[in-house]
């Protein structure tokens, strides 16, 4: 009797899983309320462990491994002095550029509004490439916002964010894609995760176009998610494809292994001006 009950239980759980999966496949991905609540709870555990680890690391860096700090301080002071001189020169150049822009009546460079976030966890399985960051609905984070870092494109916010956390799909994920172009020749295409979880591939670039190894790939802004002109990576190999399109392998500009802080693009003036509603 108990065994039969157990059998029914197993069957019930399996059917429940299949129902949950099919609901997401038929409609938009993610189960709104259940998903958001569970993600919110689990991300708090991630935040706690991540903060503890970070505190331990800070303690070590701040107090234990202070040997050589004095020499490093002197070296950094010299570096700051050099950088201040360079900054003054750059400021002069910026002023000059602004004057020329006014003179030529060109559009001024648009600045992105970003929100800094700390990475508190990675994907729970090795089969996808997502990270969890410590900013959520409370900070104004929405789904489909672009996530960048000083090195280049990181990814985009996916799923319903929690109150204090959000999940970011990295650009190297197999299911990720971004509108891109070759910086040198302005040839457009689509950058996707190559499938190995480490590199990228550029698709839909005609066999007739000029693309070379070493070319820099930047975002085109055509997808309405990633702002225009952010570095995606460098071309490592170009082969003539069997059909109409080239096979282009790209090494990402970002080092995703040691990603600790990212910037969430909360507002891009160009997209807003173009009437793109996210």
């Amino acid at each position: 009797m108990k065994r039969r009950r157990a059998g029914y239980l197993v069957l019930g759980v399996l059917v429940a899983h299949l129902v949950v999966i099919s609901v997401q496949v038929d409609t938009s991905p993610g189960t709104s309320v259940l998903h958001a609540v569970t993600f919110g709870l689990l991300s708090e555990a991630q935040r706690l462990v991540s903060s503890t680890v970070a505190a331990g690391r800070d303690l070590w860096d701040g107090y234990v491994s202070l040997r050589g700090a004095h020499e490093e301080k002197i070296e950094l002071q010299e570096q700051i002095a050099r950088l201040q001189l360079r900054l003054q020169a750059q400021d002069a150049l910026v002023q000059q550029a602004h004057s020329l822009e006014r003179l030529l009546e060109l559009d001024r460079t648009v600045e992105l509004m970003t929100l800094s976030a700390r990475v508190i966890g990675i994907d729970a399985t090795p089969w996808f490439r997502t990270i969890t960051v410590d900013r959520g609905l409370r900070d104004g984070v929405e789904t489909e916002l672009a996530v960048i870092a000083p090195g280049g494109v990181v990814g985009r916010v996916v799923g319903t964010p929690g109150m204090r956390a959000a999940r970011v799909q990295l650009i190297i994920d197999r299911n990720a894609a971004a509108g891109a172009l070759v910086e040198r020749t302005r040839v457009p295409g689509v950058v996707v995760g190559a499938g190995d979880g480490m590199s990228l591939r550029m698709e839909y670039v005609s066999n007739l176009e000029d693309v070379q190894v070493g070319d820099t790939i930047v975002t085109s802004g055509a997808d309405g998610i990633y702002p225009h002109g952010l570095t995606v990576g460098t071309v490592t190999s170009v082969r003539r494809g069997p059909s109409l399109y080239k096979t282009i392998d790209i090494e990402p500009a970002m080092e995703f292994d040691r990603l600790e802080h990212v910037l969430i693009v909360t507002h891009d003036e160009r997209l807003a001006a173009a009437g793109d509603v996210r």
């Binding site: 949950v20 999966i21 689990l42 991300s43 729970a124 999940r167």
Partner: peptide
């Protein structure tokens, strides 16, 4: 399996329920 798999699904980029189903099986 169900609890662990669902927790993994929520914290991953996949479809919620797939890891739950597979881990429960």
């Amino acid at each position: 399996g169900t609890a662990t798999g669902l927790a993994q699904d929520v914290l991953s980029g996949g479809i919620v329920g797939v890891s739950g189903l597979c881990k429960c099986v």
